[in-house]
Each structure stands twice: as C-alpha cells, then as structure tokens.
Design a protein around this nucleic acid. Structure first.
Lengths: 226, 226
DNA sequence: AATAAAATATGATATTTGTCATACAACTTC
DNA sequence: GAAGTTGTATGACAAATATCATATTTTATT
C-alpha cells in the first residue's frame, strides 16, 4: 500500500491542508485503482460515497442529454479530486467520469473525509474553495455555450486543450479526443465538428494528422471565428 | 433596525443554522437596503465583501458576454443568499445582480460571516451545501444550453418561471421579464424569442397579453418543441 | 394630450448548424 | 490478410437561428 504522505499529487488538491497524521490515516483506508482508457470511474446516478484523488491520467465528466448525446462538462486531470459535490450534497453523482487515458486513482471513503472536515478547518475550507472555483467556471462556461457560435466554441476548446494539458514534442495536443468527444465538449454534431476542423485546417491555423491536432496559429485561430 | 431573529426569510437560507445570540450579533452589524426595479445590487467585477440576504423581490444574475449580450445565469428570490461564492473565493463577484422588481435586501459584512463560519459548523455546512446545489444546477443548465434547441430552451424556461415563481390570479406568470430578458435567459436573439413566443401563442399553448404570459397547456408546450 | 423613446412584432433574407447519405480510412478480429 | 467494425470525411440538403429593416404598440416625458 503506497503512502499518501509521499504522494506528490496531493500537493495540488485540497488534501494539501492535511498533516502527516491525517495523511497516514487516509493511507490506511484508501484503495487504489487502475482505470483503463475508456472505462468509467463512476456513472451518473451512482452512489459513490467518497472521493477520488486522481494520481495520473485524464478523464472526462459527462452528462447524457435527453437527445442521447454525451455532453462533456469538464476534464479532470492528475492532482484533482472527484466526487466532492456529490459527497457533500449526500446525493448520487450528477455526472459520469470516464478515463480518456489509462489512469491511477485513489478512493477515500466518505466517513474518513467527513471526519477530517470537522477536525481540520483548513481542509474543509480548501474543499469549499475548490467547489467555488468549479461553480465560477461552470457559470462562465454556461455563458459561452449560450452566447457563442459553434465555430467560436470549437476554436476556444482547442486553445483550452493546448493551454491546460499541453503539447507533445511535435506540438500536437497532448490530450487525444475523438471527433465525437470533441463535438461533445463543444456541444455540436460530430459532423459539424469535423467540418469545422477541416475549415480551420484549410485556413492554416491548425494541422490535422489523424487524431493529432496541432495549433499552428493560436491568435489567428481565435480570430478566425467570424 | 429590524431584528434578524424575527425575520422569516432566514428560515429558508443557510442562516437557519444560527442561534438567537448569533442572529442578534448579525442584526447589529447588518444594513438594510431597498433596491428599485432595474437597479443593480452589485456589478460584475465589484468587490462586495459580504453577502446579501434577499428579504423580498426577485433579481437576475447576469454576465456580459463578449458579443455585448447580457446572459441571465440565474434568478434569485426571497430567502436566498447572494455573493457567497465570491466571499469564500475572496474574489470580485463574477456576475451582476439586478432587481427585476422592487426589493428588500440585507447586507452582512464578510468579517461577521467568516466569524460564524468558524464557530458554527452547521452554518458553514449549510453554505457549502447551498453552493453544491448551485454547482449541480449550473452543470445541468450548461448541458441544456449545449444540447437543446432555442425552441426547447424557451419552452422549458417558461415552465421553469411558472413552477418556480408561480402565477397571478389570472394565471399569468408572476415574474415579468421583458422579451430581451427572456432572450437573455434562453440565450438567443430578442427577435427569435419574440417570434417563438408568437408561434407558441398560435399553437395555443400560451396566451400573450402584452408583458403577461400565461401557459395554457404546459404538457403540450413541452412537447411542442419539435 | 402631444411627442419622443422604448419595447414588441413581423417580414425578408443570410448564415449557421443539423441531418442524412455515402465514401473512405483505420483499426480489430478471426 | 479478408471481412467486419468503427471513426473520419465530405456532399447535398433541410432546418434552425440570426440579422437587418421596418412597422406597430406601449410606455415615458414634457
């Protein structure tokens, strides 16, 4: 069993407020999982009863819309926690989490977290602040969805992917999404997404090589939306 | 100065966790305001440094989009608190709050709230849960914006207004929004909103009489979206 | 009450986006 | 390596929505 106090990713989440004793207690009751690409960590409506700490990999948080499409609400990567809202609300999870690449995650049961909540004020404050960040981002995202064109949203999504998850040595986006998933982030039909990517390609602002997308002119890409 | 322990609306917010002493302390440092219809309570980017408790009236939370449109993110009514996220994040407010009707609000300074946060666990837990509800609603709202047509969103918005804020004796929606504001909730152009309202009217699912809108066939309205 | 200003309504049209069909490419599986 | 399956691409077209113009109605102001 690996030790939480030696786990580097905890430094990036609310868990950084915990002291050595508290971390040892967590290490004792946590369970570690390997999730393969494409597998779910949890599914909308499930009772999770705890939080996941992402040690490695990226996953998508999705919600199935009435029309049968999976909308990607958010991407989560190493260092972040998953399932906090549902744990605090004491409700089933509202979103599904599915691995976009092979992942390492730890599960910490709710009872443990709630205990720390009461004894360590910094920790609960950190969690609260993290949820506040999520809320602000969700509100902003909502405005983007409501007010911007599909074209704009796709351009901004590509830039977001580059800025947040970085690029490979050949400058292509590190996070690999299928066209369907990219459409699910943007909130559009897969064909529309493909068509717009082709357009961006022809405009010379991105280069497409199979699943690899490279932004070659970020400024022009963001301007190329009208 | 009115006394918070006799204020009925506190029963509907996180403040219900406070005891008599704590309420007396709040009553001492709070300030009461009357906000006239159309006036802002606060504006995007402002430092608020406290929370507002809505004693009466309804306001809209809006965000100015890059294209110059005001997107209405949420409506807030009596019994609810305003500015919690910004206070906890220690940031300027992300949204503007503007009165849709004459309002009575109380302002409680941040120092006071943060004091209660540390001494009353139920209170801080209530606030945290309220923010979790907001986050869940924002995520769901986001999916609606991304996946549903303008027509569907307008229909659902009308039903939401009826279910949440009720109707007048003549069955018309109690909350009165201009066509521009309604378009701002739906995330569409004002003309499109007006056109769709006319269509719904012709379909016989709503009746329009100036600013008064009456839903006459809720089930058909929700079905009338294709 | 007269005038101005703002909000609502509607037509005409352009643009954006979705849908359906089909082709091709890439990847699995046997 | 052949056949099936899935993902990507593109054309043709339909539908939804935005934009611009203009009329009409309502509301505010003097």
């Amino acid at each position: 069993m690996s030790k939480c106090d030696q786990c580097i990713v905890r430094e990036f989440s609310s868990l950084k407020a915990l002291n050595k004793d508290e971390l040892l207690k967590i290490a004792d009751c946590k369970s570690s999982y390997t999730i393969k690409k494409g597998e779910p960590i949890f599914t909308e409506g499930e009772n999770v009863n705890g939080i996941f700490c992402i040690k490695d990999g990226v996953c998508k948080l999705t919600k199935l819309s009435a029309n049968g499409n999976d909308q990607i609400v958010k991407l989560i990567t190493k260092g972040e926690l998953l399932g906090q809202r549902s744990m605090i609300s004491d409700e089933p999870v509202n979103l599904s989490a599915v691995a976009l690449e092979d992942m390492e995650v730890c599960f910490i049961p709710k009872t443990e977290i709630m205990g720390l909540f009461n004894q360590n004020n910094n920790f609960s404050m950190n969690v609260m602040k993290a949820i506040c960040v999520d809320l602000k981002e969700a509100d902003d995202h909502l405005v983007t969805m409501a007010q911007k064109s599909v074209r704009q949203r796709l351009a901004e999504t590509l830039v977001y992917l580059q800025d947040t998850f970085g690029v490979n040595p050949d400058n292509s986006l590190k996070v690999k999404l299928s066209r369907e998933e990219l459409a699910g982030m943007v909130g559009t039909a897969t064909e529309s997404c493909i068509r717009l990517l082709s357009e961006f390609n022809k405009l010379g602002v991105i280069v497409i090589a199979g699943k690899n997308i490279t932004i070659t002119d970020k400024a022009k890409l963001l301007r190329a939306v009208n």
